[in-house]
Design a protein around this nucleic acid. Structure first.
Lengths: 118, 118
DNA sequence: ATATTTACTACGACAGACGAAGTACGACAG
DNA sequence: CTGTCGTACTTCGTCTGTCGTAGTAAATAT
């Protein structure tokens, strides 16, 4: 069946990550699992994509990192969203609604095809 | 205001073009104007993006080109959609619906933010 | 003891989008 | 008759986000 291609989701990985960070700071592995479960296994983010998104977003000031050692002794890099990140997220949501609106004009639901006459 | 970024539309330019070709064969300049008007000026496809999409899609067998000289003496490259193109378009529509469903789980409408408790 | 899961990092390649620039022809204004 | 505007592209080079491959390392499960 149709799987989500990287070209489609491109540019929305950041948004998805930020959404999860709105709630609470988190780290790579957890974010990846939450995306997986929240999407009901429909989208599984690639590790490299995820970690490069962290790097990019930290450089852009949308998130901040800090280290924490978990109960189990594992050292993790946590990320927390910044105010700039929250703003960026909001803009992306607006953009999404606009984009959705535009794209849907070019999508024919249920095999409907634009009619020639008129 | 929020404009549509190339990363979002990426991978859907082809779909939009194919949608317009479902109806009738067309050529670059016309397609570009129709995308513009159909989207109510919200999306204006770049020329280079458009023409490289044509090349790519012809290579993939989704469209076929032929030359025609218009009344005004202008030589145009027309494109017509193939059966493969129609199938590809249909798949992209399915993919879009799936993607939309997934992305929307990460979009908070009207400034709603996921609640911490619960 | 070994495999799997967790939690990353580094490197390199690729594809689609796009900016800049150029070509060429017709129509139309001044 | 000169110049600008609209039409209809082409070429070239660059950028960015994604992803494949690979590797490290510690904790946990078998």
């Amino acid at each position: 069946m149709a799987a989500i291609s990287s070209d489609v989701i491109r540019g929305y990985n950041d948004t998805m990550i930020l959404y999860l960070l709105l709630e609470d700071p988190s780290y790579g592995y957890e974010i990846s699992k939450r995306i997986r479960t929240l999407s009901e296994e429909k989208y599984i983010i690639k590790e490299t994509t995820l970690y490069s998104a962290f790097t990019r977003m930290e450089k852009n000031g949308y998130i901040e990192s800090y280290f924490e050692t978990a109960e189990n002794g594992k050292r993790r890099t946590y990320y927390r969203i910044t105010d700039a990140g929250r703003n960026y997220y909001r803009e992306k949501c607006e953009e999404w609604n606009l984009t959705k609106d535009v794209v849907e004009r070019f999508i024919s639901e249920n095999n409907l095809v634009p009619s020639k006459g008129e």
